[in-house]
């Protein structure tokens, strides 16, 4: 590619808050002076189905969709969905994954087991994987609902954007009453 574009994929299950996380990321990239594009599918796919959000930033961004095999950073909210998205990544890509399972319908119905060893299988292909106990750390920060912000903090450490820009993006994108707890959750994630 003639333009240095960083490709981020956020994946998980509809209802997990993926869209808000991708909006905070996009806001931070814009505030840092980059061009940014993001894309995801609404509607049918949100009813508890797989969700993939694409965020791209750089000096010039063309396609809003990350070309297959060119993902630089995968931000996974759920293990199986993270594993499913690996073909979108380039070799050596970084993976931040919430160590959390949401059983898909066939598992709920007892037809197939939830695939095991997913974390090890991700690691064998992408050694730069960081598993995060998003729920556990969020609870420690005082609110289970801040799990995504813990993960976002961990992702932020893998991107060269200043602390102040992240803070500003969170302030602009989150409701005032939820801000303090989310700033704490973000700081916790940023140490990982």
């Amino acid at each position: 590619m003639s333009y240095a574009v960083t490709n981020i994929l956020l994946v998980g299950v509809g209802g997990q808050g993926i869209l808000l996380a991708s909006e905070i990321l996009s806001e931070a990239f814009m505030l840092a002076g980059f061009e940014v594009k993001k894309s995801e599918i609404h509607g049918m796919s949100q009813r508890g189905g797989s969700v993939v959000s694409h965020v791209r930033f750089g000096s010039q961004v063309l396609s809003p969709v990350v070309p297959e095999g060119e993902g630089d950073l995968l931000f996974g909210f759920e293990l199986l969905e993270t594993y499913r998205a690996l073909p979108l990544l380039k070799p050596g890509a970084k993976v931040v994954v919430n160590d959390y399972r949401i059983p898909p319908p066939s598992v709920l119905l007892g037809q197939v087991p939830y695939p095991d060893d997913l974390l090890a299988r991700i690691r064998s292909r992408f050694p730069e994987v960081l598993p995060v106990d998003g729920q556990g750390l969020a609870q420690a920060a005082g609110d289970l609902r801040a799990a995504n912000t813990v993960l976002l903090g961990a992702v932020s450490r893998r991107l060269s954007i200043a602390d102040e820009v992240w803070r500003q993006a969170l302030e602009r994108m989150l409701p005032r009453k939820a801000l303090e707890i989310n700033l704490q959750a973000f700081a916790k994630g940023r140490t990982l």
């Binding site: 299950v13 508890g48 189905g49 797989s50 199986l80 594993y83 990544l89 898909p104 939830y114």
Partner: peptide, 18 residues
């Protein structure tokens, strides 16, 4: 040729009624 991870058969996650 771009080298990527080959897709595998995994339990699908279609949309569902809430």
């Amino acid at each position: 040729k771009v080298v990527t991870v080959a897709p595998e058969a995994l339990p699908p996650r279609p949309p569902n009624m809430c």
